[in-house]
Structure formats: C-alpha cells, structure tokens
Design a protein around this nucleic acid. Sequence first.
DNA 1: ATAAACCAATCATCCTACAACTTTTAAGGG
DNA 2: CCCTTAAAAGTTGTAGGATGATTGGTTTAT
Lengths: 225, 225
Amino acid sequence: MLKKANRMSLVEQVISQIENLIESGHWTVGSKLPPEMELMEKFEVSRNTLREAIHALVHAGLLETKQGSGTIVRSSSALEATMHRHIAKSNLVETLEVRLALEREAAQLAAKRRGEEDIDILKTCIKQCRNAADKGELEEFISADIKFHKSLVKAANNQLLQDLYEHMTDPLYFSIQDVMVMDSEFDYEKEIHSELLEAICQKNVEDATKYVNEYINEFKKRLSR
Amino acid sequence: MLKKANRMSLVEQVISQIENLIESGHWTVGSKLPPEMELMEKFEVSRNTLREAIHALVHAGLLETKQGSGTIVRSSSALEATMHRHIAKSNLVETLEVRLALEREAAQLAAKRRGEEDIDILKTCIKQCRNAADKGELEEFISADIKFHKSLVKAANNQLLQDLYEHMTDPLYFSIQDVMVMDSEFDYEKEIHSELLEAICQKNVEDATKYVNEYINEFKKRLSR
DNA sequence: ATAAACCAATCATCCTACAACTTTTAAGGG
DNA sequence: CCCTTAAAAGTTGTAGGATGATTGGTTTAT
C-alpha cells in the first residue's frame, strides 16, 4: 500500500493521503468519511496514528468530527480554512478593502498578460450580465457579475492572487450581494465592465487602471452609505 | 491550570492552551517544549490526547518534533505558517506581486486614516534609513526600509491587511534583500519615502497613490531584471 | 586524543479498554 | 397501525501501557 518514505512520519503520510483524496474530489465537501475502523484498514495504520492525522486536519479546518456521528469534509483547502477563520475575526469593511486591493492589481496584471481565452470568458460574462439586467433578474446579474470579477482575476495569471481572491470572495457572497442591491444601477456596472474589458483586450494598462479604480471607488462609496 | 470548557474537546483545549503559551511568548520561537510526560501532567490529559494536540500544531506549522530530541517552537502564527507553505509552492514573483498590491492599497488608506503616532514612527524609520545609507550599512538600511513599509501598512488601520502583509513579508525577507541589493540606489529610495511620507502626513491621497506607484513600478522593474 | 560502543531520554507506533454521544432498531402501549 | 420510548449498535473521545526507533551525550577501549 504505502512505501517507506522515511523522511515522512506515518501520520504525515496519512495526512497527505487524506488531503489528496479531498483535493481530488474523491471525498467532496459535506460528505462523510468512512468510520475510523475502515480507514485504519485502508491506510494500514493504528487507530492512534489515524486519529492524529484526522485531528491535524480538523485543526487545519479541512475536517469536522462529531462524536457518535462521524467525520465530514468541511473545506477543500487549508488556505481557504485559514482565511475563513481570519475573516470571521475581522470586520466586513476590512475584508472588502483587501479584496479590492487584490482586484485592482489583478486588472492591471490582466491587461498585460491576458490570453485570448480569457477575453472570451470575460465577454461571455458581460453578455450574461446584460441579459440578466435586461430581464431585471437581480440574483442572476450578481452571479454573473461575480463570475466576471473572478475571471478577471484569473486572467492576471497569478495563482496566489487568484487563491486569495476567491477564498476572500466566497465567504463574502451575501455581503457583496447586499452592497450591490443597495442601488441597482445596472447600467453603470454594465458600462464599467465593458470599458474595462476593452482596455484589457487592447492591453492598455493605463485605461484598465483607470476603469478598475472607477469601479472600486464606486463600490467603496456604496459601502460607506 | 485546566479550565473546564466543556464546549471544546480535550484535544482542542490543549491546542488552545499551547497556542496561547506560544503567542504570549511564554514559549519563544526556537525554544524546546518540555517532554510529553511533563506536559501530560501539566495539562492533566493522557498521552494520546496530548500527542494529538501537538501533532495538530506540527501540521499547522507552529511546532516541530524530532524523535529522540524533543519538540521545538517553529512559528508563532498559523497564518504565517500557512503562508509559508503556500509561498513555498508558488513562485517568488507571484508572491511579491500580491504583496505590492497590498502595499499599494495600504498607502492610500494610510493617507486617509493615519494617526499622529503613525507619522512619528514613519519619520523615525526614514531617519534610520538615511543614517544607514550614509554609513553605507546595507543590512541595516534594508532592515529599516522593511520597517518603514510595515509601519506604513500598519497606518492603514486594517488588521487583516496588516496580517497578510506581514506574514507575506517575513518569509520573503531574503528575497526582498536580494532585489534591493541588485542596484543599491540609496538615494532613490530615500527620496520616494520622504515624498510618500509627506503626502500621507498631509492626507493627500492622490500624491500618496502617485508615489507608491512610482516605488512599486521601480521595484517591479528591478524584479524583471 | 580519537573513535567505537553504550546508555538514557524522547518521540513514534501500536494495542486494548472503556466512556460519551448519535443513530438505528425494536419493543410496548395506545 | 402508529407513536413513544427504551434498548442496541455504531462511532468518536479519552485513558494508559508496551515496544520500537532515533537522537544526544557518556563511557570505554585502542
């Protein structure tokens, strides 16, 4: 089953394997892990070793155990879990400020490094935004809007930036929604996004900076109301 | 010694207490923990419970155990440890980009919200930079320079931003040093910092933005060489 | 004096047993 | 037959002991 990687302890090996099973999607978020007995046999370790591994992951935020019930997958990424905890302790405005800082940088980087397929995705997002706005579907609009911003960050081609942004955006979903709902100026959003996309498309960093700053300032204005 | 917080499992309680002892400085980074036997008695738990707690902290990156030798404190913050691991996997440029994104935002926020004591600290840092530059003490200069940037971020008055920045800066210390050494244009650094401080002092957001962007662009230019 | 052998301290792993909690099953009364 | 309730089974939590593996220092022999 497992080879003797002498540099890693048994516990570390088990932790690693469990992490892989979670990250690979074999155990999805929310699903229940097999009981300890089965896992002991599966990994060929004692109960202590297995439990130490599981507890390490519980503390890391990836798993959650309930006595008498079982162990479930709580999160699929250690960074996400750490961010969750940290965000829970800080206030909403602070988190949004950081998120916008990342977005500002992302727009500038995207203008330099975006690929052709990024453009396609962003265009699709804007189309979805327009459709939703025309139909007056607020929920749908916000969903497409967030997708646009995530895609924008992805186009920046920086994995760490993307990870941080997404792990910061997801826990804030409803808060963002609230800010967006405050005044539903669909048209404004639509325009900004189009202009920003155009700048990124032409790799015009200055314009991209200008438009993303406009958007961020508008967002912050709403936030302070 | 042991408080009965029945909400938490014994393991979690032990983890919490160890974390507190580390964060409070009772056990400093690099120091050795007492052997398991003593800790068992101190926390009044069994060996399994204690070991599960210690291993959780090992996996979190706060502790490090060596068979036959003992357990030492490796880091004092979970976020820092997570960052360390994540940064180790992504490349240097990506991390620096994110760090600069945070710094850009910090400068703008600092221009709005800095207190009087922030100004004093920043002035002191610049003074130290100048002294070190005049004496040609590179090491000292870089140290003071980093302190200036950290203080700048602190003046932004955003705890999450500060935590992320610091935990991103510390693991990059030597990399930053390398970039700074590349060409030691002390004068340039000195000027930018003075101008930036002046803008922050006068709560002039536009100027602060301008100067921090200059600094960041210069830094990035060096990075790409 | 140096290197090999030894020894004590310490962590790593495994084992068994029982306690506490949850879910499922079954029994009993209406 | 249905509902309530009690028993049973399943699962994680805690305890304590036994043995192996590794490290660091000490002693001993050359």
